[in-house]
Design a protein around this nucleic acid. Structure first.
Lengths: 117, 117
DNA sequence: GACATAGGCAACCTTTCGGTTGCATAATGA
DNA sequence: TCATTATGCAACCGAAAGGTTGCCTATGTC
């Protein structure tokens, strides 16, 4: 778990950006919230409650799957989607790292001011 | 700090989605990484090192500012951008909440299996 | 005042996104 | 077998994203 540096390998940042982008939509965020209870659901089930066509939901699920947030498992004639916490855990630790970097910088600033009144 | 529920007010989710979306781009992610050291920088400074025009960087900074991740402070003839950790902290706690929900669901599943061998 | 520097504004372009519709196909159940 | 259900595939569409270029304005500097 390397802290974020300006010159970090682009591949890692590219992956992270794709996960962020996948979550950057209210519909997809809502889908993730529903699936985070651990129960896999079919496309038909997931389409209920949205003012969108099944195809639109299918596309959103595809985006989330590409980002690794969901996995698709075929069961008979239906596609079940199940949640994977991995990518979102990675984002969480990344955000924590940035926040810590920020806190440290703030601490140094305060110390500097205290020593140069 | 309410845990994410499927029926959460859309306004909150909309804000979160916009922050996620703002971070869903490698260039913007890189800009954030640079500014997270606490030092405000001008647009000219921030434009260095990218194969993009100054205007492109300006647009990216605008997106980050709209999401509340950066603040703009005019100083003389230059616009300085400074980091604000707030929105990213919110995302972090949101992601943590989802992960905990997931862990709890997994725990219940294991308990169920253990009791029904 | 003359000139260089930093940035804002606006028009324009191409690609991607989010969405729809129509139709084809695979599994199921009566 | 036949109708139904669940999904996949592809074409299409308008709007937004990401980017460029050209020009204008404000602020420093000599």
């Amino acid at each position: 778990m390397s802290p974020p540096t300006p010159d970090a390998p682009v591949a890692v940042d590219q992956l992270r950006a794709s996960v962020f982008a996948a979550l950057g939509d209210v519909t997809r965020l809502s889908l993730v919230n529903r699936l985070a209870d651990g129960q896999p659901r079919s496309i038909a089930q997931l389409s209920e409650g949205y003012p969108l066509s099944r195809q639109a939901i299918t596309k959103h699920l595809g985006v989330l799957e590409s980002a690794g947030i969901l996995h698709r498992v075929r069961s008979g004639r239906q596609s079940l989607y199940e949640f994977d916490a991995g990518p979102m855990r990675d984002l969480s630790s990344y955000l924590e790292a940035v926040s810590r970097q920020w806190d440290a910088a703030l601490g140094r600033l305060k110390a500097y001011i205290a020593e140069n009144p």
